[in-house]
Write a protein that binds this DNA or RNA. Structure first.
Lengths: 135, 135
DNA sequence: CTGACTGCAAACGTTTTGCACGGTA
DNA sequence: TACCGTGCAAAACGTTTGCAGTCAG
């Protein structure tokens, strides 16, 4: 995905420089929290308001363009919505990575055990990343 | 588990009426957020302070007696720490339930794919509970 | 041209802190 | 008794809101 202008239009959001920058940052970082997002955007738009960041992140989240990811013991981070995936968090360097895995088995099992009709799954795995292990 | 006095002592926390009440509430509800916890405890201890709730929840979380559970689109809830389990959240009635499931397969698969050494997993499944489905 | 978006400032809700008093061990 | 825990009030945070000016469509 490269054309963020089209992405905004697809979600019925007007294309503004601030919004393009937000999506570009989310895409570049993979995952980023509000505070870091704000200070990075400030470098290019010194007058950008924190309120603008919040308003836009909420609009984008509601329109389905962006997703909030809640991770234990970390601030919420945001990502551009894409195919379902798991989150890996490193205990040492605190980076967040996506991995794609087939979760059908466990969902099916959970439905059987609980009687729920499951709509969505949120899986976060905590541990040590390969880079930190080899230090 | 019934003896909350012993549980507190085991975690090197002094036994106070407020702390006993907090654990009793967590245990009774399974999962509860700070706001609800506060108002329920107020019924028995009208002068209890919100600061006391926060301080104690933090201490209990740090000592490993209590766990925070972050759930998408809900406030954080807290639970008495117990064996590893998944969380089921109902989209309609918003209740949170625990289920115990074998997650070894998916953890193993994730370790293989990512190269991480996984220490802990956080799995939340969103859907409709049996009670809400049959209405 | 019109409605939506932005930046600013104020308001708001939640969580944390400092301190004097009281209770546990 | 010594320290830790409690309640209260104030402060600190993070997030939201209202509004006047500006910009995208």
């Amino acid at each position: 995905m490269e054309d963020f202008t089209a992405l905004l239009k697809k979600h019925n959001l007007k294309v503004t420089p601030q919004r393009l920058k937000i999506i570009t940052m989310l895409h570049a970082h993979g995952h980023i929290n509000i505070e870091d997002l704000f200070s990075e955007i400030r470098e290019e738009f010194p007058n950008v308001s924190l309120a603008t960041i919040y308003k836009n992140i909420h609009q984008m989240t509601e329109s389905g363009l962006v997703r909030e990811v809640k991770i234990p013991s970390l601030k919420s981070v945001y990502e551009v919505a894409k195919e379902p995936h798991l989150h890996m968090v490193c205990d040492k360097c605190h980076k967040v990575e996506d991995i794609v895995l087939d979760t059908d088995k466990i969902i099916e099992e959970a439905e059987k055990v609980s009687g729920y009709k499951i709509e969505e799954s949120f899986i976060t795995l905590r541990g040590i990343c390969p880079e930190c292990r080899h230090k």
